[in-house]
């Protein structure tokens, strides 16, 4: 089957600092891919390039068989314009670490604004699909609340509904529980687990929640220093790590986890 996402020899530098050093990665339609690795390994950048928030320095990304950042001009590739990006972006969604809800809109409007203004849905149509998404994340009773009145976990669930309602083919979850108080992490993971079980949408889970990655991912990639060091099924990665880098990462992670408990 054709990949929904294909990174080919992608690099990303900020000035002299190269954070992504040549990555090839395919994501199959509906695949749940977990991306783990130490901070500063470039995993967030990987997701942000797919969401068109960061421009790759070199290499190409294909989305659903079409170049994301480039358009073909005869044999050459040229940088895509805003119009092309706008068309391509419709297939990707993203949930952010810090929610980024619109503080001046209530919960319902946060979710209906893009369907109405971007997809051109009527108010009623948008409200209907927004309410069904908010029901899915367990917040259909909070429609009139403003983000400031919600807990972190509730905010993140609204953000998930807001991204889902656009029906992306692939969704980037960028450390979505990292900014949450520990007791609120569970409710967000529960929602993501339910979405994952529905199946058809590909998911890129950039995460520090190893147990969660192990449970829902079809495949896990471990990145460090801007490269993919190891990849495989959750069992291979977590129970039988090959590289020394991954072994020490998991060991340190488990030690830290034990300390936290």
């Amino acid at each position: 089957m054709q990949s929904i996402v294909r990174y080919s020899n992608i690099t990303k530098s900020y000035g002299d600092l190269e954070v992504i050093k040549g990555i090839d990665l395919d994501i199959a339609p509906g695949e749940k891919l977990a991306v783990i690795g130490p901070s500063g390994s470039g995993k967030t950048t990987l997701g942000r390039m797919l969401m068109t928030l960061e421009v790759p320095t070199s290499g190409t990304i294909e989305l659903d068989g079409e170049l994301l950042w480039h358009i073909r001009d005869k044999e050459r590739l040229i940088r895509a314009n805003e119009k092309h990006l706008h068309r391509m972006r419709g297939s990707v969604g993203m949930v952010f670490q810090h929610f980024n809800l619109f503080p001046h809109m209530n919960v319902l409007r946060n979710v209906t604004e893009a369907p109405r203004k971007v997809l051109g849905m009527s108010k009623e149509e948008a409200a209907e699909s927004a309410v069904s998404m908010l029901r899915k994340v367990g917040l259909e009773d909070k429609l009139k609340m403003y983000p400031a009145q919600l807990s972190g976990g509730q905010k993140q669930r609204v953000a998930i509904a807001r991204a889902l309602v656009m029906r992306p083919k692939v969704m980037v979850f960028d450390e979505v529980t990292s900014a949450l108080d520990p007791e609120l992490v569970g409710e967000v993971l529960e929602v993501i687990r339910e979405i994952a079980e529905e199946g058809e949408m590909a998911m890129m889970l950039i995460t520090h929640e190893m147990d969660f990655a192990k449970e829902i991912a079809d495949r896990v990639i471990f990145g460090a220093d801007g490269r993919i060091v190891e990849q495989g099924t959750p069992e291979q990665i977590f129970d039988n790590p090959q590289s020394e880098r991954l072994q020490s990462f998991l060991k340190r992670f488990r030690a830290g986890y034990a300390l936290r408990d």
Binding site: T52, L53, K117
Partner: peptide, 15 residues
Amino acid sequence: GQWEAATALNFSKWR
């Protein structure tokens, strides 16, 4: 993050 959320939801520049 507000600009980024707007991009992620595919709002045009004007919107």
